[in-house]
Amino acid sequence: MLGVFGVLGMLGGGALAAHAYSNSQQSMPNNEAYGPVLWRNETVDRLFPSTIGVPHYADQASDKKVAQWSRMGVSQDTSCSQGLSGQTKQTAQRLGCEAVLRATYVDLSGEMVATVAIIVLPKDSTAAQEMGNYLADQSTADHPSAAVVPLTVPGTLAAKWQADKRNGMGGTAIGGNLPYAIAVTTGAVDGRTSGDLPGHFGAYSANTEDRQPWMDEAKALSQTFYTQIQNLEG
């Protein structure tokens, strides 16, 4: 069930080279130089751990003891145009998006599915922070952009995960020496959609309230990956 669907195009350097590079991180003299390129050099399992959760300590996000989500698959396509949608795609492209790395996870209850996107932006710029500001604004918008294109993973609980089943979005920027933003979209494994309550049931912000738990989970997962990416810089 937890097989990887592709390997991010081998992250531009080959799996063995990436593995060797990540093993030598501790001896790298300049973390400032490594931050902007870690997305090319880290292995898939370090960028997108097989399980992930809110850590008790900063370096434990991928510790199976705190696991809240299990990885279903990783996208081979790293293009910005295929990884993002709507206004989110337009914003990322305007800011110089270089790549979008995606993976799909299912929570341990087997009820919620999420696709996580690591948005790679130009180094030595404010692009990541601007992208983070955009994502923050979307989290409180009446009609937020769906943001991330869901990654469907055949043969898993995410086999029916589609764009029209997105219920929530959230995101954050890392910034500084790490020119990345994290965007997440969430939905129900069974395909239930939120925010479409009929008639008076959907009045007086009921649709917004129905969507809020999905938004909150997306935001929390983006913060977890914020921690994970920071830890990779060493």
Rank of each mutant, 00 (worst) to 15 (best):
L121S: 08
L11Y: 08
S22H: 08
E98A: 06
A183N: 00
N133E: 15
A206N: 11
A20W: 04
Y180K: 06
G110H: 03
V74I: 09
K219Q: 15
A181T: 02
D63Q: 01
A128W: 05
Y21F: 11
P150E: 02
V120T: 01
D59Q: 00
Y204K: 12
G86I: 06
N133P: 03
I119W: 08
S145M: 03
T185C: 12
N31A: 15
W214F: 14
Y21K: 08
A92C: 03
C97G: 08
V100Y: 08
S222L: 05
M215Q: 15
I52H: 00
L84R: 04
S75K: 07
I52G: 07
G96R: 07
D190P: 08
P49T: 09
A163D: 15
E209T: 11
M169I: 15
G175H: 06
S62R: 06
G12S: 00
T193S: 03
D45W: 08
A17P: 09
Y105L: 05
Y204R: 07
P150I: 00
L16S: 10
S139T: 15
T88M: 09
Y134R: 02
S85P: 03
D142V: 10
T208F: 12
A218L: 00
A18G: 06
A206R: 05
S85W: 11
T88G: 09
L2K: 13
H19E: 15
Q68C: 04
S81E: 14
T104V: 05
E233S: 14
W161G: 04
M10Q: 14
Q129N: 13
A188L: 09
S85G: 06
W69L: 04
S139R: 13
L11H: 10
N31H: 13
L197F: 01
A58S: 09
G202V: 02
Q223K: 11
G187C: 00
W161T: 08
G171A: 09
L8V: 09
Y204I: 10
G6M: 03
V37C: 02
G86R: 07
D216P: 08
V54H: 11
V100W: 03
D190H: 07
A17T: 14
N231V: 12
G13D: 06
D210V: 02
K165G: 14
V74W: 08
K165N: 12
A158D: 11
S62G: 05
V4H: 08
V184C: 07
A103K: 05
E42R: 00
A159G: 11
S85A: 13
V148Q: 02
T227H: 06
H200T: 12
P213D: 08
M215L: 13
N30Y: 09
R211Y: 06
A128I: 00
M112N: 12
T152R: 15
V7S: 12
L11S: 08
V153G: 07
S75L: 04
W214C: 09
T193E: 01
